[in-house]
Design a protein around this nucleic acid. Structure first.
Length: 277
DNA sequence: ATTATACCCTGAGTGC
DNA sequence: TGCACTCAGGGTATAA
């Protein structure tokens, strides 16, 4: 599912439901997801007050008041469902974790492919441990703060700019959809080497990246297969895609060229060969 | 050190 | 209808 806008959509709903409350019961339906659940997972989290639900890159971070943070990644197909505890549960084969809150909610983690995971760490040392210690800046931070870092990191890399956008250690949270969309908006070819971009182009790219991420968050993310907002409603930014999965259709900018699909590092990239140079 | 590839896993979609 | 095959929002461990 989830790139930054989808994770942010989930974060907001979780924050609303969880902050100031806690888990009265935690049910785990299998020993592992991508990684085994930490030993004592339930015991460590049960009946502890939740201070905040944060996001860093594509990671959800649930801070508890006893100094533990739950690191929660949704992988490719992870989905969070928040429903009223009094409704009858509908069993689903990939509901791996079910939290009951101290209020009136049931929070379900559903993940068919199980690329997601839940780990525990100390809140105080979180930023000093991998992967958080090496993540790039958050793309929605103020431009004057992150632009110099972004420029510096890109100018050291020879890989294509599309691949660089997906590198979480260069900039955090961008995934395959929004990388293509941002490059199209900025009129930059995904094939261009990162170090060949001028600072003007990098500035334009970061601005357009912020634009597309913001609009996607406002739309509740993009619903392709697995993602839905935790209240069950679909996101609707997929209707605003200009290039993603639009190969063969006419570019909306030049109105002349059919959009291309190419493969870079094993991932699909969509772009206009005419507009993006 | 940087970059590319293989892989983890299931389900949906396509073509025969 | 069934089977074989490809592909999918991510990250990490390897190899080159």
């Amino acid at each position: 599912m989830p790139e930054l806008p989808e994770v942010e959509t989930v974060r907001k709903a979780l924050a609303q439901t969880l902050e100031g409350n806690g888990f009265s019961q935690i049910q785990i339906n299998r020993p592992d997801l991508r990684f085994p659940f930490p030993t004592g997972f339930q015991e460590q989290l049960q009946d502890q007050t939740i201070l905040a639900v944060r996001r860093r890159a594509k990671y959800l971070l649930v801070d508890f008041d006893h100094g533990t943070t739950l690191i929660w990644h949704l992988g490719m197909s992870g989905r969070v469902i928040i429903e009223n505890k009094d409704t009858r549960p509908t069993p689903y084969p990939h509901d791996h974790v079910i939290f009951l809150t101290s209020q009136n909610h049931r929070v379900i983690y559903r993940d068919p492919r199980r690329f997601g995971f839940m780990l525990l760490t100390s809140t105080a040392t979180l930023n000093n441990t991998k992967p958080f210690s090496i993540l790039g800046p958050e793309p929605l931070e103020p431009l004057d703060k992150i632009m110099p870092i972004f420029i510096e990191r890109l100018q050291k890399r020879s890989m294509p700019i599309k691949s660089a956008l997906l590198d979480q250690n260069i900039i955090a949270g961008v995934g395959n959809i929004y990388a293509s969309e941002a490059l199209w908006q900025a009129r930059i070819s995904p094939l261009k080497s990162a170090r060949q971009l001028t600072s003007i182009e990098i500035e334009r790219l970061l601005k357009e990246l912020q634009d597309v991420l913001q609009r996607a968050i406002t739309a509740g993310g993009s619903t392709l297969r697995d993602h839905a907002q935790p209240n069950g409603e679909a996101g609707y930014f997929q209707h605003s895609f200009k290039v993603y999965a639009q190969q063969g259709t006419l570019c909306q900018s030049c109105q002349i060229t059919a959009l291309e699909k190419i493969i870079q590092n094993g991932r699909a990239t969509y772009y206009c060969i005419m507009c993006q140079v």
